[in-house]
Each structure stands twice: as structure tokens, then as C-alpha cells.
Design a protein around this nucleic acid. Sequence first.
DNA 1: CGTATGACGTGCA
DNA 2: GTGCACGCCATAC
Length: 82
Amino acid sequence: MKFGYKVCQIVKKIPRGKVLTYKKVAELAGRPRAFRAVGNILNKNRDPKIPCHRVIRSDGKIGGYKNGQKRKIELLKKEQAL
DNA sequence: CGTATGACGTGCA
DNA sequence: GTGCACGCCATAC
């Protein structure tokens, strides 16, 4: 619970035009080995107040998105442009 | 409480 | 450089 809560705070703090990796978020959350749980939490919670679309993989790829990777790509492109 | 899942990451072939 | 398999942590059922 605390972990997921912290992850939410971190992701919500991500400014526009910036993206963090699951690993980075997990590190900031205090569990650099829980990068898997990070995506899992965002996936099951998919909170609209959490710009989870700003969280990408360490490979630089988009990764996944409950609403659809396409939507994530669109959002990233749009926000990065701003 | 225990098992299975999941939006990942790293290592080896 | 690409592909496959294993390992890891938290959440949900």
C-alpha cells in the first residue's frame, strides 16, 4: 500500500514533457527491484490523476498501457511537444 | 494466507 | 543486434 502510494506521488510529480522509467520510479519509491510492481500498481489502479503514460521502459520504448499503447504514444507526443 | 498475474529488466545464446 | 528465458516485487483474487 505504502509503496503504491509513493509511486503515485512520484508519477504525479512528473512534469510535462518529461518521462520516467519504471526502474527510476521504483528507485524513488524505495524499491529499485520493484519496477515490476510499479507498472502493476498503475495498471490495476490506472488513476486518472496519475500521468502513468509518462512512465516508459528503460529500453526507451513506450511499454504498455491499459487504455492502449497507441493512446500512450499519442499522449507522450502531445505532452512532449508542449 | 497462498497462488497467480503483470504496463519490466537483465543476462546469455 | 535480436530473441528467448529467468528473476523479481507488489497487488488482486
